[in-house]
Design a protein around this nucleic acid. Structure first.
Lengths: 169, 169
DNA sequence: TAATGATATTTGAATCTGCAACTATTGTAA
DNA sequence: TTACAATAGTTGCAGATTCAAATATCATTA
């Protein structure tokens, strides 16, 4: 009996209906990993340079995906648009990015890394890589590939999801 | 040449040194998944009942791991201790938990779900399960197992990590 | 046991975040 | 072209979060 429950849990189908097994509950696992990495990288690598995690996310996205409108930056960074607006203001003040109106559509703003911004990113990227390497230490390369592929799919699933009946009524 | 780079990236070892490939960068993937799930679950399932994600995390941990001291709750929920203190105050006010001093160690506080708290958790757990199911839709059971196992290991890696030399001084 | 350090929690103050309302611009269609 | 709706961005404000300092208790040891 107990065996059956345990096997079911191993298969990802926990049996007791009114209790979450948090150690096997994806949102819990994801949240604690995200918090742990952000906390350490933020305090060890960013804070000494007056940068926050949110600022770093904006910088990393700009470096990876190139100049963006703020609304696209918000989507790519998972940062709320009004929060992002203020972060871009701060990054502008310290010379990391520039904010310029699109010539063809003047309600849009293009956010672009400055030379100083690019230099900061170039300095931080190897450190960020080191954190990722530490994070995945001991995992088989194949498992890491599965991990990342699954995370991409989970993200796509959530973005394409309809609100369930229970909340939509 | 390009093939070699792509194979290297597939193996989790991106080659260009000054740019992050965000779509293959674990902290980025984890953060966006965590944000997407929390945002949707929070607004659709929790907000209508006056609950926040942080409150829900506390409740879920208490239901899963039983009565806890606040400091352990902070660790288990990845919530900062002073933030947690205020969340527990709120949860106490609305009758979800009780806060009682440990008899043997009166500086400690034990946080316990009330009957009302348990009822709320029992109501929310199936919904939380439904979100997880939606999140992992289309993934092979075996891959889901790898995903969760990797996340547990990554968490352990981060918790046991020493601050790297680059940030140490 | 008195003194010192460690642990658990709370609180003050500053900062950050999110929602809603607002401005400005663009798109659409009568 | 004028009106109305949609889009991009900003800002006010209330609430949330964080860090540091304060409080209270416990542990250790001289």
């Amino acid at each position: 009996m107990l065996e059956r429950v345990e096997r079911a849990i191993d298969r990802g189908n926990p049996v007791p209906a009114t209790k979450l097994e948090l150690d096997n509950y994806l949102p819990y696992l994801v949240n604690r990993v995200g918090t742990a990495i952000a906390e350490q990288f933020g305090t060890e690598a960013l804070a000494p340079y007056g940068l926050s995690i949110a600022m770093w996310r904006v910088m990393a996205v700009l470096a990876s995906a190139g100049t963006q409108r703020q609304i696209d930056l918000a989507e790519l960074t998972s940062i709320e648009v009004s929060t992002l607006s203020r972060i871009v203001t701060r990054l502008t003040r310290i010379g990391i990015v520039t904010r310029t109106r699109s010539p063809n559509n003047t309600r849009e703003v293009e956010v672009r890394l400055t030379a100083k911004g690019n230099a900061q990113v170039a300095r931080l990227v190897p450190i960020a890589r080191a954190y990722e390497t530490a994070a995945i230490a001991g995992l088989a390369a194949q498992d890491i590939a599965v991990l990342k592929r699954c995370l991409r799919r989970v993200y796509a699933n959530m973005k394409n999801r309809q609100a369930p009946a229970v909340a939509a009524e």
